[in-house]
Each structure stands twice: as C-alpha cells, then as structure tokens.
Simulated assay, not measured.
Amino acid sequence: MSERQAVSTYEQRRKLRGMTVMLILALLIVAVFIISMNTGYIRLSPLDLIRTLFGQGSDQENLILFEFRLPRIVISVLIGAGLAVSGAVMQGIFRNPLADPGILGINSGAGLMVMLLVSFYPTTQAMPVFLLPLLAFVGAGLTAALIYSLSYTRNKGIRPIRLMLTGIAVAAGIQAAMIVLTLRLKPEQYQFVATWLAGSIWGTNWKFVLSLLPWIVVLVPYIIYRARVMNVLQMGEQMATSLGENVRKEQFRLLAAAVALAAASVAVSGGIAFVGLVGPHLARRLVGPKHQMLLPVSALIGALLVIAADTIGRWILQPSGVPTGIVVAVIGAPYFLYLLARAKS
C-alpha cells in the first residue's frame, strides 16, 4: 500500500468514526429528550405522553408538556450546543486548552448587561425578550475586547497563561460590580438575579426559543464552515500567515461568532459554566483535533450535557429542583481540576 493510499484509508476510518460518534450522541440526546419530557413534579406516563404529543391530551397535560417542559428542553439543547461550540472556537484560536466562555469572563460580561436590563424593568415579564441576546452580545463583546487587549503582547501575541489569568481577573471584577448592583434591586428582581447567577434556565417559553434560535442556526453552521481555517490557525500565527491566511482578520471573525454564541446562550440560561470547557475536550478525545468533526461533536456533547443536567436538576429536590448550572458545575469542576493537574505536569 502506498503512502497516499494509507493516508486515504486513515481519513476514511476517521470520518467513519466521527459519523458513528455523532449518531450515538444524537440517539442519546433523543433518549434524554424523551426522559426529560416525563420528568417533573407532575409525571406523565408514556401513554399519556404519546397521546398528548398527538393532540389527544387534557388541558392540564397540554399545558405541562407544550408550555412548560418542551420549551425548556429545546432551550437546553440550543444552549448546550452554543456554549460548547463557543468554547471549541476559543480553545482553537487561542491554542489554550483551558479556554471557556465562563472561565474567561465572557459569560460575566453578558450577565452584567442582562442585570442592567433587569434593573430598569419592574418585572422580568416586561423585558424585551428579543433584545436580550443583542444586549448580552454587547456586554460579552466589550469584555472579550478588554481581555484580548490586556492579554496581547506585541512580541509574543496571546500567551495562554496570561489570557487565562486576565480572564479570571476581569470576571472577578465584573462579578463584584454585579454584587454592588444587587443592592439597588427590588426583592423580585434580586430573586431573578440570584437564580440567573446559579445557572438556572429561566427563559422557559417559546418566545425565548425564538429569540435564541436564529443565533444558533446562523452562527454554528458558519463556524463549522470555517473549520479548515481553524485547523490552520492551530498551527501558530507564523505558519498560518505563511499559508496565506490573514490571522488577525480570521481570529476576529471567529472570536466575534464565538462571543455572540456564548452571549445569546447566557442571556436565556444564566451563568452556566464549564460546558464550553468539557464539551470540546471530550469531543477531541473521541474524534481527534480536526475541527471538521470536532465542532459538530462538541455541539452534540454540549447539548447532551445541558439537557441531562437540566433533567437531573428538575428531578432532584422536587418541586423546586436544582439549578442546571450547579449540576453542570458538579460535573465540570472536577474535570477542570484534572486539566489543571495535567497542565502542571
């Protein structure tokens, strides 16, 4: 067998492995989706669930399934995919395995804008739902620009450790500002902010699905389309430039898309961290570092992680439940410590 044939055979096997992994993940998401529809304070038997899905349910069953559970489940899938792809992009363009929208402070910047919006409205129901992702993007974009400018050095560009420390410091400063702002909030507004900070999926109706869906539908395919460019950027700035890529321009485009994904997701989900860290890492272990497979697998893993965490959170301590962000943190924090230990070694 010639070298070209060997490479072609390896690529075919890698592609087949990636497609198999995506199929398994998609089936797992469907299974958890079905389980999640039957998880809550009021249980629906499988027969009741099927009957309600086909329009034969009672008024109470229709209300529970179509107005309360299905929007929340769909939002969980969209949030997970958005945060995971955003994390994969940041890890790729910064060449930092610990990059994550939550750890780098991007989520905090988006949250600050959401909190400022909350402080100007007497109730959360009065807030302009479709304006939330846009305002969150402004806050996240300004935060990303600040972190990038503080981390960049003329001689060495973006250094991973400097980027990480800068992101943590900026996030701490923003969270301190958010705590100060809570002092002027009314009790119902403070309750909302506390719920948001814990990572509870608070946007649970179809309006929030419609406000988030365009960002996911447009930006995730765009980032996957730019997968080849991300492969080149991972080789380093000098190598990418020698191959004809405009590194600064491509980094800006991809970073803007990643920040927009994280901001739109955070606007309706609250401060859910670690999804953008865990998803890409698990995807990299399953299908390798090439972004043509890494990005879609990351999206599926992120969607599976958030929908499973939300289902577990609604099942524990009923009827109040546990915020999704806490369940994700229980999974993600030990993995983050594991990655730090590996980085030190």
Rank of each mutant, 00 (worst) to 15 (best):
R226L: 12
L104C: 04
V129K: 04
F130V: 14
K15C: 05
A260Y: 04
A145V: 11
Q238H: 13
L261Q: 06
R159A: 14
I50D: 05
I103G: 08
A110V: 07
A84H: 03
I224G: 04
Q91R: 09
L116P: 01
M113N: 05
L286N: 05
V129S: 00
L286R: 01
L300Y: 04
N155D: 09
I307T: 12
Q60G: 11
T166V: 13
L49I: 08
F252G: 11
K156W: 03
F336E: 11
H291A: 04
V278P: 02
R342V: 12
G92V: 04
G111C: 05
G157L: 05
G173L: 04
D59W: 09
L277W: 10
L210R: 13
I312Y: 06
P296H: 01
L254T: 06
M113E: 05
Q125T: 09
R284H: 14
Q318V: 14
L340P: 15
T9Q: 15
L63W: 10
V330G: 03
W215Y: 14
I79N: 10
E11C: 14
Y225E: 01
S151E: 06
M164T: 15
V30K: 02
K156A: 15
Y222S: 13
G105C: 06
L63K: 09
I331N: 01
I42M: 11
F66E: 00
I301S: 00
V77N: 01
D48Y: 07
T9R: 15
S242E: 04
L23F: 12
V287A: 00
T20A: 13
G40P: 14
I223P: 15
L23S: 11
R4K: 08
I147M: 04
D100K: 11
A88H: 08
M293W: 13
L213M: 09
S36H: 03
L112S: 11
A309Q: 00
I64E: 03
P221M: 01
I147W: 01
R13M: 11
I201H: 04
A260Q: 06
A343T: 15
Y152L: 06
A299V: 07
Y222H: 14
A308G: 15
I201Y: 01
I216E: 07
N38T: 15
M113Q: 10
L131V: 12
N96F: 09
L44G: 08
L219M: 05
S211I: 02
T241Y: 02
G244M: 06
A26I: 08
